[in-house]
Design a binder for these strands. Structure first.
Length: 277
DNA sequence: GGGGTCAACAAGCTGC
DNA sequence: GCAGCTTGTTGACCCC
């Protein structure tokens, strides 16, 4: 029942980060190698690890039908996927390098943005690019190998896919973002379940406490259920427990290790209680 | 029509 | 200063 006993594994190396709201807060880059979950795991306390295979995102994307992908109005290029038609988004903010002077020699941004806003002389709005299945598959494969690309790999892949390097770069950026989002959702779900588990445990402990209080107020015969001789103290947490019942009567002084045998199984929450106890 | 997905982008941050 | 990254947003497209 304890959800934290489920053995799952978080497979992605991207940590949870607090999503910055767009309302004025300055975005803070938080490359979090250890998310809250990973922090807990580092303490070896929760054993629940949600498994997220590397390709967790596979199968969820690219639902667009192939005909939908291919159905692209007259593009200046014969290849449907590598468009570079001109399209100036009506509401797009002015770009830094957009004005005539934006003639940057080398940067990926320069070449790509140029490509995004170039041709298509007829002024018709650019249709949305949809990568073909083959292109997506190959990109996915590359992403599985490495979630980032160096310029050389980027250009090679772009050439292989008949795309512009900028498109490959953007795809990888978006892909990383999707992966991270997915991981955040998984982590969130995990924390939710942990919270539920702790709430249940808290409720149970409260109930147990109430019972103990009632027991304490009860007349002596009830209190004598556990003779003093059968009680031992945990050397670690100093709590008093009833020793294990047995033919030897629990007198077992020094050699007898600390044994916990309460009527009800006592819950030691791994998050809180020391492992030695 | 509305919601979801995705390519593309802008802005900001970091490391060199 | 620049390259490359993350994050948030935009708009096209698809499906219901």
């Amino acid at each position: 029942m304890d959800v934290c006993d489920t053995s799952l594994a978080l497979g992605l190396g991207v940590g949870v980060r607090s999503t910055a709201s767009s309302s004025g807060t300055t975005r803070r880059r938080q490359e979090v190698p250890c998310s809250p979950l990973r922090s807990l795991m580092a303490q070896k306390q929760p054993s629940l690890m949600l498994s997220l295979p590397h390709d967790v995102y596979n199968g969820e994307t690219n639902k667009v039908s192939e005909e939908g992908r291919q159905a692209r109005p007259s593009s200046p290029h014969s290849t449907v996927s590598s468009f570079s038609a001109a399209y100036t988004p009506p509401t797009m903010k002015k770009e830094k390098d957009d004005g005539g002077g934006g003639e940057e020699a080398d940067t990926a941004r320069a070449d790509s943005r140029g490509g995004s806003y170039d041709d298509n002389d007829d002024g018709s709005p650019r249709k949305k690019l949809r990568l073909t299945k083959e292109q997506s598959a190959l990109l996915e494969d590359r992403f599985k190998e490495h979630s980032t690309l160096n310029p050389k790999q980027k250009h090679a892949l772009a050439k292989q896919l008949n795309l512009r390097p900028r498109q490959v770069e953007v795809w990888f950026q978006n892909r990383r973002a999707r992966t991270k989002l997915k991981q955040t959702e998984v982590d969130c779900e995990f924390l939710k379940r942990c919270c539920e588990s702790l709430t249940d445990e808290n409720r149970r402990l409260h109930k147990e406490l109430q019972e103990l209080k009632v027991l304490k107020l009860a007349p002596p015969p009830v209190c004598m259920q556990f003779p003093a001789a059968t009680l031992t103290m945990c050397p670690s947490c100093k709590s008093i427990r009833a020793a294990a019942d047995g033919p030897k009567g629990g007198g077992g002084g020094g050699a007898e290790p600390f044994v916990v045998a309460p009527a009800k199984p006592h819950f030691f929450h791994r998050f809180i209680h020391s492992a030695s106890c």
